[in-house]
């Protein structure tokens, strides 16, 4: 472990970490934004659910490196444009989160939906105030998985030159110099841990009923 390298490259490491956070989390947000309406539609129209599951599995099975390389051609972007990574990871995140959203909404019992309608909820208000909150535990489970997966997948981008902390790995391997590799690994793990804690904390705050024990 070369501590001098660490101090002299602090600015670089900070930049890479920031890029890593950006590349990992922006796709989660975009993926969720896509997944909410699509998941809502697949939950609402039972016929859409099986094809959605299939599409989700197919999308997720495409190797990330293939997507990173193919996108500049499709999107007309530069090969080194971070947008390629963002779009690719958004697709992964969206593909998984659509299932979480749909499964969450499908977990709302007919009884609850029926009684919400019967007491006089308008449709949109029922979705926002009743169905979506009940779906939250599913959505959060998806978010946790997707966030951690994205944080690890960003590093693959280093193979095409933009991969946040992943660049520390390529750099270290090329030079057989282990310090940047260790730093990259430690920071990736810490980042994943912090993100997970943040999500779990938010979930605890938003879904207090899931922790209420049976006391009677």
């Amino acid at each position: 472990m070369d501590w001098d390298w660490l101090t002299s490259n602090r600015a670089l490491i900070t930049d890479l970490l920031t890029q890593h956070v950006y590349l990992a989390l922006v796709p989660v947000a975009l993926g969720l934004a896509l997944a909410l309406p699509i998941g809502f539609l697949t939950a609402r129209f039972a016929r859409l659910y099986p094809p959605m599951l299939a599409a989700s599995a197919v999308l997720y099975s495409i190797p990330s490196i293939a997507l990173f390389i193919v996108f500049p051609g499709i999107l007309g972007t530069q090969i080194l444009d971070p947008i390629n990574i963002v779009v690719a990871l958004t697709i992964y995140a969206g593909a998984l989160l659509v299932r979480s959203v749909a499964d969450g909404l499908r977990s709302v019992s007919d009884q609850v939906r029926q009684s919400a309608t019967a007491v006089g909820y308008e449709r949109w208000r029922r979705v926002l105030k009743i169905e979506l909150p009940i779906a939250l535990p599913f959505i959060f489970a998806g978010l946790r998985f997707v966030t951690v997966a994205n944080i690890s997948m960003v590093s693959v981008g280093a193979l095409i030159g933009i991969g946040g902390l992943g660049q520390l790995f390529t750099d270290g391997f090329q030079r057989s110099f282990f310090t940047p590799i260790i730093v990259g690994m430690v920071l990736s793990v810490l980042l994943a841990l912090c993100a997970d804690i943040a999500i779990v904390t938010t979930q605890r705050f938003l879904t207090p009923w899931t922790r209420a024990g049976r006391t009677t």
């Binding site: 609850v112 009684s115 919400a116 007491v119 009743i130 009923w209």
Partner: peptide, 20 residues
């Protein structure tokens, strides 16, 4: 919607909202 708010409704298990 307006009609329903003026009519009480009870189903099996009460049809309660689990998150409230």
């Amino acid at each position: 919607v307006q009609l329903r708010r003026g009519i009480g409704y009870v189903i099996q298990h009460g049809g309660l909202f689990p998150h409230q």
